[in-house]
Design a protein around this nucleic acid. Structure first.
Lengths: 241, 241
DNA sequence: GCGGTTAGTTGAACGTGTTCAAAATTCCGC
DNA sequence: GCGGAATTTTGAACACGTTCAACTAACCGC
């Protein structure tokens, strides 16, 4: 529970229990009846605590969602790391990571859309242009670093450096797609994953080709720009054109 | 005002006035003090109407934002159409459309982020995977249809059909970036526009090349998949693999 | 065991988004 | 101009997210 985003660090085993109880209760209720339809009062009552107590552990209703996102990430990591050890092609590794992510989130399909409620918030872990202070976001991108570093594919250094971020953005897109997917067992999402992973794999291969270097450099410079949006210091014309 | 998303169609000139007054008041207050800090009570009071009256015209606070988005689109169209008549290259047309969009939204930079508050909502005009019922979204994509159809660039038919949607998604990305941009006069955003428009132009040129047809077909099929996420009918395996 | 500190818990109250029945105003046909 | 219908306006009340002062429980040093 220590990795969970909470109002304050829980100091006792009893507090740990209460915190977990509140979160579990909330997630279950979100799943059953939806996020908007679940009130904090209902969560507290079902968990057998006071409303204020729920707020003692979770600063806001939205923080429950962030805790959920953290939980999803943690579960994802647990599944991914052993799986990656058996795979060495870029394609297989990426396919596994993305599929497992959807698998992990599956029970929460109904309310997963609220994850994107703060997509425009610079502090949101889901925001591609966010500042980088968010721990889950950092950790999630690091997982893609592992995908990249463990592959046998020959990838130029400059591309290797940016790929985790790009793959992370790609995976956010897949999650967004999945949220909208109403096909049986989200077949459409898995199909899209299959196809896009294949395409991404090819693109990485193409982009790694030496004759693509100028174009690649150019594109990667743009990616760098994308990540600078949240810099709030004076823009100092870092690169001569 | 008729194009504005409201609780109910306004039936009288007086109603029109009140509706406009409320919206103008709200947007001004959003700009001055931010969306979250502006209460519906404050808007109503400043507009000189009752709180319930504000809700008579705008179903929710969020609907004010949607009316804002509609207003931005309307203003954008007014500027874009005459400008496009003077341009025929893809690059120039696209550059103009994107730049003007940022120009139009500029006064509202402070609260434009809330536009993305409903990015995960299938009904949101901003959502790339949304169902297509939203009028502003449709109209916005149609504007990019005009960009495409008025260009002298030779673009294959299949790409032409998908390009407005893709350009629209691209432009949403630019807006999201802009929201985070804190550089003076959003220089970073304009710079990114310049560079990405150039890149997009090149990609269109490349993708239009006959030897790219198989790859293009493949990619466009994926784009088609992307737009199907919101279909809530049974997935009938439309295409043989 | 006591006292002080820390951690956890409570429930009344606040602010804000929203609703809705009633009242007021406007519209329109006769 | 009147009456009925339609439209607009109102403000009290509701629901829900959130806060916070007061209380309770647990911890720890002496």
């Amino acid at each position: 529970m220590a990795a969970m985003r909470k109002k304050k660090a829980v100091k006792t085993p009893k507090g740990d229990q209460t915190s977990k109880l509140i979160l579990d209760t909330a997630l279950e209720m979100f799943r059953e009846r939806g996020y908007e339809q679940t009130t904090m009062r209902a969560v507290a009552e079902k968990a057998g605590v006071s409303l204020g107590n729920a707020y003692y552990y979770f600063r806001s209703k939205e923080h429950l969602i962030q805790a959920f996102y953290q939980t999803m990430h943690d579960e994802h990591v647990v599944l991914v790391l052993p799986a990656l050890e058996k795979l060495d092609t870029m394609k297989a590794r990426l396919l596994t990571v993305i599929r497992l992510k959807i698998d992990v989130m599956k029970p929460y399909h109904q309310f997963a859309g609220v994850l994107f409620k703060t997509a425009g918030d610079p502090q949101s872990p889901l925001n591609p242009f966010a500042d980088e202070a968010n721990a889950v976001r950092v950790a999630s991108i690091q997982l893609f670093e592992k995908v990249v570093e463990g592959t046998k594919a020959r990838i130029p250094k400059d591309l290797r450096a940016e790929l985790p971020y790009l793959l992370w953005v790609y995976h956010m897109g897949i999650i967004l797609f999945w949220i909208h997917d109403r096909s049986p067992k989200h077949r459409r999402t898995y199909r899209l994953i299959d196809r896009t992973v294949e395409m991404v794999d090819k693109m990485i291969y193409l982009a790694s080709n030496p004759f693509m270097r100028p174009l690649r450099k150019h594109a990667l410079a743009l990616v760098d720009e994308l990540r600078d949006a949240a810099e709030d210091i004076m823009d100092q014309e870092e690169e001569p054109k």
